[in-house]
Design a protein around this nucleic acid. Sequence first.
DNA 1: ATTGTAGACGAACAGGAGTTCTACGTCAAC
DNA 2: GTTGACGTAGAACTCCTGTTCGTCTACAAT
Lengths: 225, 225
Amino acid sequence: MKDRTKLSERQKAILKFIEQYLERHGFPPTIRNIGEATGIESTSVVNYNLNKLVAAGYLAREAQAARGIRLVKEKNGKRGSTHAVSANGIAVQVMMLGPIAAGQPLPLPAEMSSDPADALEVLPAMLKGADPTEVFALRVRGDSMIDAMIGDGDIVLIRRAETARDGEMVAVYLEDRSEVTLKYFYKEGERIRLQPAHPTMQPIYADAKNVRVQGRVLSVLRLSV
Amino acid sequence: MKDRTKLSERQKAILKFIEQYLERHGFPPTIRNIGEATGIESTSVVNYNLNKLVAAGYLAREAQAARGIRLVKEKNGKRGSTHAVSANGIAVQVMMLGPIAAGQPLPLPAEMSSDPADALEVLPAMLKGADPTEVFALRVRGDSMIDAMIGDGDIVLIRRAETARDGEMVAVYLEDRSEVTLKYFYKEGERIRLQPAHPTMQPIYADAKNVRVQGRVLSVLRLSV
DNA sequence: ATTGTAGACGAACAGGAGTTCTACGTCAAC
DNA sequence: GTTGACGTAGAACTCCTGTTCGTCTACAAT
């Protein structure tokens, strides 16, 4: 690997973008592509920096040719962006509770059916390390939680809990409204802010006594697209 | 290995020339380059045959882009074996592509890394019966698709497709905005209505030519709650 | 203060390059 | 004989895209 530290920030950004673009498209970007991606308004500035990169030995260019850029190879095959989620094999079973509807608190785990027909297979990664026996799945009915980015038919994995930390998505039962909802949880002194996932939606502020945390949302699964 | 014998002589020559040119230059040839090399006078004839090659699965093209040709790499034969069989209870593996960002079309499945680290285990139910080799997973970056109820960090399972039926959620590339978005698809004569999942959001109306369907959304997985 | 150099900007230009349209010939199907 | 699909041509059209040029700033060296 050559010493990229000698390059200006812009040149590094350009080089990175070209590599990325090439990976994604299979052909090089145009000067204007590069400019847009790196915040450079002027094509001549891009051109200038491209020539710098050529001089520095990172690129080769073909004059007068559209997208006539080529990377000078000598990279070791380092791949970026690997997002493997843990892979230890087999699906896990959790209890599947009936549909969750507004106006009802969640049933207690003890009330859950032990009927294996109500079991749902999920990926280990969806449990976030929680004990499968403490996790249950809910199928959401209606669009009442759309502001939590959860729609009709979505399956929500919840780990039962009475408390929550700031920023966690929780299933809470609001006494006064007598409804269950899914929101991001933030404790602000004696009151609690329940923040919808949709940024334009207004949060709900509720007295801490009014809020009964029922569980913490581990993951969401949407099969019904 | 695909059967190249079904291609016409011209198409074989074109394909060979593109491979060769790509090797030599590092970027694809122009239509006129191809014409000169293969003795075709008319650009439209080259264009015609290129489209044939796309239809046959050998190439991919990007509209309106100079040298917007890329080779669809052959899958090395045993590729299917990297995918676990969809037995009951067992997780299935699909390819994991890098983050999806606005302004970029989706990469081709054939270009996907065969690095097992880029594999993601999913539930058989998440494939909706689709062949695992035709399905890939994308991790969504940013909140640009929040109106599709898909947020930052969500994993979307997509089955590659060029067409869609009404009501399906699709990944579409909008030419004029040059961005990829996930919306519900409705064809209304010559224009297409792209409906956000959020009921209060306004749909996008786009000319059919402007809309490139990239795939059909099978399911959504949110681990990062 | 003057000069020189590197870097940046924006506009305009000109050739590069994809697309579209019409037309022609072949060949098999009806 | 007519039709339609397929492959081929050629040219016009549009706009994509690299290049050039004049100008401006910041910073050292003279």
